[in-house]
């Protein structure tokens, strides 16, 4: 899913003529509204807080340079996610990332007899970050990104489908398998 960069052309161009937003005005509003989601997406894709920090900085620099072409607020989150996905994809295509990252075997999750209907339980909320990190790390890229995007309630299934370059029906179908895979992997991280 991360292999091919998606089109980052902004969907509209009336929001920011000239694109000159000093930090402290409209661009700061944009940053305040979306930076946590951008950072989190990068963190859970790259798995490293330092890399996620760099990625968030670079994504917003890129957004700043291109925001003059942006046309409206409706798909701003989607647009930022698109830039983030492309940026993380580029980072992960480095030699190190290609060779160190272990690709999860999808069939393991397909055949697993985990019960995804049961709630995900844990003893300490303080363990959540580590458990989510390990769980998502064990999933195939496609499932990981799908769950991260769908978890954002501001994003419609259509937007998720657009970002992941597949049909909305495909998103719904894969989401079911992704949830099951997550439940199986989550149990193993206990």
């Amino acid at each position: 899913m991360l292999e091919t960069p998606v089109d980052e052309t902004p969907p509209d161009s009336s929001m920011a003529p000239g694109g000159q937003f000093p930090l402290g005005s409209d661009f700061a509003v944009l940053y305040e509204k979306h930076h946590r989601q951008v950072f989190y997406l990068a963190l859970r894709i790259l798995g490293d807080p330092g890399q996620a920090e760099d990625a968030t900085h670079d994504v917003f620099i890129k957004a700043y340079r291109k925001i003059g072409e942006f046309r409206g607020d409706a798909d701003l989150r989607t647009w930022l996610y698109r830039i983030t996905l492309n940026h993380c994809s580029n980072l992960r295509q480095t030699w190190h990332a290609r060779n160190v990252h272990v690709q999860a075997d999808d069939t393991v999750f397909e055949l697993a007899v985990g019960n995804s209907e049961n709630p995900l339980r844990m003893l300490e909320i303080s363990e959540l970050g580590e458990r989510i990190h390990k769980t998502l790390g064990a999933l195939p890229d496609e499932y990981r990104i799908l769950l991260l995007l769908v978890a954002d309630e501001e994003l419609s299934y259509d937007a998720v489908a657009e970002l992941t370059k597949q049909s909305t029906d495909a998103v719904r179908g894969k989401l079911h398998r992704a949830r099951k895979a997550f439940a199986v992997a989550f149990q193993k991280t206990a």
Partner: peptide
């Protein structure tokens, strides 16, 4: 003090 989540999205 334990917690539970109905879905992966909720946990995320």
């Amino acid at each position: 003090g334990a917690v539970e989540f109905a879905t992966p999205e909720e946990a995320i």
